[in-house]
């Protein structure tokens, strides 16, 4: 990972599970544990969307969760980047023909970075967060 100006501050991630199979969840948590250790870059999971720079969204958004996803998105302060983690959030994946989905995620909220895989490896997730840093940087430059 090349040092970018964006690393002059810590990136906080809020993980939003919209009804995923837990596969992405455990890989996201695996990605923050010692083997991968992104905390050395200041990247960490936070407990509230109000503290977050990045929304990491997993799962195919079942109907019951749609409103919550919109609320969490609204609660996240701007500028923000939304990462869609996992194939089912991207396209529905194996759940493509389900009757109970309002997804994929980009039908509900705008997505900036997609991480493919079912589930993506922790390395891929970290790569996605790095992409998000670059995007956030551009957003901040644009906003300034």
């Amino acid at each position: 990972m090349k040092p970018t100006p964006a690393l002059n501050r810590s990136l906080w991630v809020f993980h939003l599970n919209t009804g995923s199979c837990n596969g992405c969840e455990i890989e996201i948590v695996a990605a923050i544990t010692p083997r991968y250790d992104p905390e050395r870059f200041g990247i960490k999971l936070v407990g509230s969307p109000r503290h977050a720079d990045v929304l990491m969204v997993t799962g195919p958004v079942p109907k019951k969760m749609k409103e919550r996803v919109l609320r969490v998105y609204a609660q996240t302060p701007d500028p923000k980047v939304v990462i869609c983690c996992g194939t089912c959030g991207e396209s529905g994946g194996v759940y493509y023909d389900s009757y109970n989905l309002d997804g994929p995620i980009d039908d509900v909220i705008p997505v900036d970075v997609y991480i493919s895989g079912c589930p993506p490896r922790p390395e891929a997730i970290l790569h996605g967060v790095v992409k998000a840093i670059e995007k956030l940087e551009r957003l901040e430059r644009g906003a300034a």
Binding site: N17, G19, S20, G59, P60, P62, K64, M65, R68, V94, Y95, D97, S98, Y99, N100, L101
Partner: peptide, 14 residues
Amino acid sequence: PGQTHRGIEWMGMR
């Protein structure tokens, strides 16, 4: 519960 209901059984029957 029910927030993660994806209708897997229904999909399986197809």
